[in-house]
Simulated scan of single mutants.
Amino acid sequence: MGVPAARIVFDQSDRAAVAEAVTEMLTTGALTLGPWTERFEQAFAAEHGASHAVAVSSGTAALEVILRSIDVRGRDVVVPAVTFYATAGAVVHAGGRPVFADVDPATLALSSETLEAALTPDTAAVVLVHIGGLIGPQVDAVRALCDRRGVPLVEDAAHAHGSTFDGRAAGTFGLAGAFSFYPTKVTTSGEGGMILTESPELRDEARVHRDQGKGSFTTNHHVKPGYAWRMSEPHAAIGAVHLRRLKEFIETRRAVARRYDAALAGLDGLDPVLEPPGCRGNYYKYVALLPSGVDRAEFKRAVAEEHGVRLSGEVYDLPLHLQPVLAPYRRGPLPVAEDVCARQVCLPVHSDMTEDETQQVIDAVSAVYRRLAGAKGARSCG
């Protein structure tokens, strides 16, 4: 049997709970901004120790709503070069200018040093991304630098449901955090996003932005240039049901990651992005870096075709400053981002992954890596 790159896990009891909720809402006709949205918001906030949560249509919308609430129009927003397009896309759509920063190779995230190099006199916000669900120890230094400069810190926590650092949850280190519930995430609502914040003012702004800029759900008075960024009730019900499994899913993923850590320690040159001290990640992704000279495409092909193991999409194979659509904002090379994006692979981690599947991945990666790394060594000696 093969091991897929991703697997979405809803057991029979989850499916029954969602079906019951959908029957209820179809009976009542409450299909948007109803009781399930409120339940999901309250449960997600409680899970992360946050005061306020606002459900929206996607993680991208969550980030853009936060940036619009800050009002970054015509100003700079620092984003790491190692992240998904949407991090910068939200800045552009909110009227800001993305400024790309290099990353710490140990965490693939901003550090205070890379952030300081990217700050400008016109910086309106900083976006910190928790790649793969790992929160690095640099988070406090990044927050302190933002505070000294008087710049709000925003977390792109699209990968980081339930992740913590020193007992504090993702989405609670800055002014606000944005989460995604795209189907492959550790918990999903099908499509959707969530904003966490301690600020009642930002919470209220977000509620206005998500509902076409209306001052309240029941009026036709539009006070902001909002969008249709609501989360539907069916999506909220799916999200609320799946959220109940978050702790269980994270435990399963962490057990897989511990076995990968041990196995990769015996493969000289194939270096995992290890969990930093103080971090308790959800392992949305398990990232490892191939040594220079090992062909990533050939590595992935061999693992898939010879062993039936599909390596999930990189995070990410092309840094933001080299994305064609973002070329107008390019300011120069970012060597660490370019290096780690060129060399990274992601080993499969599923929320119901079995010991046999984990071993199949370890055997496949070990066999292919030893062969390709040995061939690379032979060429370098020839």
Rank of each mutant, 00 (worst) to 15 (best):
G74K: 04
M25K: 10
Y182Q: 04
A160Q: 09
A169E: 05
P328Q: 07
L246M: 12
K300L: 10
I250N: 09
G59I: 01
D204N: 08
A178C: 13
G89C: 07
V309A: 03
D14T: 02
P272D: 02
V78L: 00
V79W: 00
T83S: 06
H52L: 05
V368M: 08
H161C: 12
G266C: 08
G278H: 02
Y182T: 06
P234Q: 01
E198Y: 07
G374C: 05
P4M: 00
F173V: 07
K247V: 14
E298M: 10
S199R: 09
C279Q: 02
T252E: 11
A262I: 06
A378L: 08
P35W: 00
T27E: 03
Y284H: 13
D363V: 14
V336Y: 02
P319D: 01
G308I: 08
L334Y: 04
D104T: 06
V273H: 04
A17R: 15
E47P: 03
A30K: 15
R370P: 14
V54P: 09
R253F: 13
F179M: 01
L320V: 08
G49P: 13
P324Q: 01
R7N: 02
A378G: 05
V151Y: 02
D204W: 03
K224V: 12
A327C: 07
D166I: 12
R148K: 14
R371M: 13
G132W: 00
A94I: 10
E233M: 14
R210N: 01
R343V: 11
G374H: 04
L267N: 03
S58I: 12
T23K: 13
D104N: 09
D356N: 07
S112G: 13
W229T: 05
A46W: 07
R280Y: 11
V142G: 00
A257E: 02
Q344K: 08
L326Q: 03
T188Q: 10
Y329N: 04
E64P: 15
S180G: 08
E38C: 05
P4L: 00
V82W: 10
A21P: 09
L33Q: 15
A45E: 07
V142M: 00
L246I: 09
T32S: 09
A304Q: 14
D166E: 15
V79A: 00
E38N: 07
L128A: 06
A265G: 14
F249M: 12
H130G: 04
R244L: 12
L175T: 13
G171V: 06
I250H: 07
E41F: 06
A158P: 05
E298C: 09
E357L: 11
G377C: 05
A106F: 05
V361S: 02
V9K: 05
L31A: 14
Q359L: 13
F181N: 08
G313T: 10
P152K: 02
I238K: 07
L31Y: 14
T114P: 09
H242R: 10
V273N: 04
D204G: 04
R143G: 04
R258S: 13
I131K: 03
M353F: 06
N220D: 15
R330M: 03
L110S: 10
R258V: 12
Q359I: 05
E357Y: 10
L145C: 13
S380E: 15
P4F: 00
S180F: 03
V103T: 14
A125I: 02
H130P: 07
A43H: 06
A6I: 09
G49N: 10
Y316R: 06
L134E: 02
